[in-house]
């Protein structure tokens, strides 16, 4: 789980990008095995497959609406500093781990 100030920052950034790029929806997800786990975003989906782009080892941005190649770079760069921060948080909290056996003693599981 992300702290709510970070969630709000992502929401705000996604809202700005929807307005700037004319998108119906932009949202950031965490890669957890096959799951693309919703973290935060803005807008309402259209009845079509969302496009997606890998932002960092554990984060993917999805969007709905037409986006030409140069505009994708705008999307990426506008999310980059936030993405770097979230990625670092996920790794530090152990949430960057995915798809395998969970380490840890019983004690560590009951802080």
């Amino acid at each position: 789980m992300l702290a709510s100030p970070i969630t709000r920052l992502i929401e705000q950034r996604c809202k700005d990008l929807c307005g700037r790029l004319g998108l119906a929806q932009v949202y950031v997800t965490q890669i957890l095995g096959r799951r693309r786990h919703f973290l935060a975003g803005y807008g309402r989906p259209l009845p079509c497959k969302p496009e997606q782009m890998l932002l960092s080892p554990h984060l993917i941005v999805f969007w709905q609406g037409e986006l030409a190649e140069p505009a994708r770079e705008i999307l990426r760069t506008n999310l980059q500093n936030l993405t770097d921060f979230v990625e670092q948080q996920l790794v530090e909290s152990g949430q960057g781990r995915s798809g395998g056996s969970a380490p840890g003693s019983d004690e560590a599981m009951w802080p």
């Binding site: 957890l32 095995g33 799951r35 152990g94 949430q95 995915s98 798809g99 840890g104 599981m109 009951w110």
Partner: peptide, 11 residues
């Protein structure tokens, strides 16, 4: 914490 570990495998 245990839930967090289970979450990580993409349930």
């Amino acid at each position: 914490e245990e839930f967090r570990a289970v979450r990580s495998v993409g349930i």
